[in-house]
Design a protein around this nucleic acid. Sequence first.
DNA 1: AAGATAACATACACGCATGCATGTAGGTAC
DNA 2: GTACCTACATGCATGCGTGTATGTTATCTT
Lengths: 187, 187
Amino acid sequence: MLESAARGLSRYGYGNLILERVASEAGYTRGALYHQFKDKEDLALAVIDWVDETWREEVGPLVDREPDPVVALIALARGHAVFCRRDVARVAMALRLEFSGQDHPVGRHLRRVSESLVKRCTRLITAGRRAGTIPAGPPARVIALAFIGAMEGAVLELAGQAPHDELLAARAAAGALGIDPDQPSIA
Amino acid sequence: MLESAARGLSRYGYGNLILERVASEAGYTRGALYHQFKDKEDLALAVIDWVDETWREEVGPLVDREPDPVVALIALARGHAVFCRRDVARVAMALRLEFSGQDHPVGRHLRRVSESLVKRCTRLITAGRRAGTIPAGPPARVIALAFIGAMEGAVLELAGQAPHDELLAARAAAGALGIDPDQPSIA
DNA sequence: AAGATAACATACACGCATGCATGTAGGTAC
DNA sequence: GTACCTACATGCATGCGTGTATGTTATCTT
């Protein structure tokens, strides 16, 4: 059910998501859905948490095992690209776009989840700057936002076109960081 | 009315767009809207054309006046970032995400319009490769998609945070192209 | 000045998705 | 075997947005 809802959310967004389809695609009826989740909002929140958890399990380790901040960030971009080959992963981008500038509970929850990724990237960027591998420039948080945006945008547009998605996500992300994409850790 | 609809589309997307609000925000009622446009779809199509036209007028010249393909592409990214400071510009990204993988008339029309941008970038990339300023790699069209995605993603995430948006869009775009963001035309 | 037409506003019918209330089948406890 | 609970399906009421038909007012034409 969660998987079906995630697919639906990533394809149609929250407002256009029809619970009837979510349920039937999972082999159930709407009744079953309302038995498992309080309402549509509750379902969306659960999906966000589920996707976030999956992301942490799948991409997190790739980042953590790299001691060098730049290498870690590039690994993050590559891992994200691979992660996004499952359509499920567009959920974050789709919902963020849909709820940006609004005060909807789903939007708030998504922002909270995303914020932890932004913070993670910001820390890596400041670490990279201290190490001298990331050049000075705009505030680290701004760089982090651009980093995430560029990575997600590239991945979204390539729509899982393996194997180029991985390389290009890494390159776009490296560009946002201001480092040469011709480095060994990227190419 | 077009401007109000563009704001609405960029904020809420097509499905969540309420024509009542579009009209009232423009100082009219829904009656006036239905007098000027056949239906909701017709309105969205008109908005797409309007935004596209504005983009061509505003960003196009910045690209055309640069003889060097790389410089032209970076100018495109910078120009796009500036263009997107008006919320109007997210229309393309919002609708593309909403209609990707669907067969809706609005989505088709948007893809036709976007395709011309992809072609333009593809041509510039192949030109840059012939000139030796853009390294070899994945097909030019794939690079073009990543280029556009990275640029739009970065701009979207930065949400008009001038002046950083311009620099970071250029950097992310340069990264997708595989060129060093430390070049004079970018920084 | 009268008729026509454009530019709106108003009011209503329809479809559709949500949420909830109710019904039902299977398992478990005692 | 009866009481009860879980895991669903079914059916209905409500709200909301679209589209359209019908008014109303201004502007243009001759």
